[in-house]
Design a protein around this nucleic acid. Structure first.
Length: 275
DNA sequence: GGCTTATCCTGGGCGC
DNA sequence: TGCGCCCAGGATAAGC
């Protein structure tokens, strides 16, 4: 499931291939995959436009196109944005196919159909098109501080794991990297967020940044449904210390990794190393 | 207001 | 082998 490092890896792949490419035609194979506007307008506005640059905010991919047009993608659980060379075989669950003038295709493949695309109409902004963008918290690399976490967590009784998944507190953290960051910071995921001490928040903040940067460097994770824009798997899964390791020995203390549910999400932790 | 739960959706894994 | 059930999870709405 794509989180920030996976989305960033996809963005870098798209940024290498897309700028300069012009959209010749668009096929929408699944109407649900287009969040805004209607299908006719989506196709009508994009046809003939050229890609300028590809940016990212949290887990959103922001594509700038010519004539002040844009496109936003959120991959959710199983979405993939792939560049396919001429004649390359398409994956099994293509929802939107964009034919480019250079012979390549940009395809939005999404098994579980949770992913969404938005068109940014001329004169509008990414934030106006996708209001959730303006509510996102700081990026976990560089912009995040312990003071920000302290302010957001103050008085919160919900678990720190659940709070970390809140995109208005930190943008881009998902289930995998929340578990990994909390393990490395030595903090139990079910502790109330508001109970964490300043020293723990500093440690957590530092570990979030390290985990995310390391995952980006390794090309993201390959847990389940993710591949980069070129269809290449990431390497982060070998680095995971707790996620997906229920019942296996902790790499630090050898005690068994436990799995619990917090707000309906699978949560992995070591009861010995995390307090 | 704060928090939890349900919902969306489909493929894979598992038990029978 | 085939069937049915459960599980995974990001964002959002609904409910407590």
């Amino acid at each position: 499931m794509p989180e920030l490092p996976e989305v960033e890896t996809v963005r870098r792949g798209l940024q290498k291939e897309l700028p300069g490419a012009r959209i010749q035609s668009i096929s929408i194979l699944r109407a649900d995959s287009v969040a805004y506007p209607d299908l006719k307008s989506f196709i009508g506005h994009l046809k003939g436009k050229s890609f300028c640059s590809v940016e990212r905010r949290g887990k959103y991919i922001l594509m700038n196109l010519s004539d002040n047009t844009g496109m936003v993608a959120h991959l959710r659980m199983s979405g993939r944005l792939l560049i396919l060379k001429k004649g390359a075989r398409e994956p099994a669950h293509v929802r939107v196919r964009i034919q480019l003038n250079n012979g390549q295709k940009l395809v939005f493949d999404d098994t579980r159909v949770f992913g969404r695309l938005w068109l940014v109409e001329p004169g509008s902004s990414f934030e106006e098109t996708v209001p959730a963008l303006s509510k996102l918290g700081p990026e976990p690399t560089g912009a995040l501080s312990a003071a920000h976490l302290e302010g957001c967590f103050k008085g919160k009784t919900q678990s720190v794991k659940t709070a970390l998944l809140d995109q208005t507190i930190v943008a881009g953290i998902g289930n995998i990297y929340a578990d990994e960051s909390l393990f490395r910071a030595g903090i139990r995921p079910d502790r109330p967020a508001g109970d964490l001490k300043s020293s723990e928040l500093k440690r957590l903040c530092a570990e979030i940044e390290k985990v995310i940067e390391n995952a980006i460097a390794l090309g993201g994770s390959t847990l389940r449904d993710y591949t980069s824009a070129e269809g290449v798997n990431g390497n982060y899964q070998q680095e995971a210390l707790v996620y997906g390791r229920k019942g296996e020995p902790c790499r630090k203390c050898k005690k068994s990794i436990q799995r619990i549910k917090l707000s309906g999400r699978s949560t992995h932790f070591c009861p010995c190393c995390q307090r």
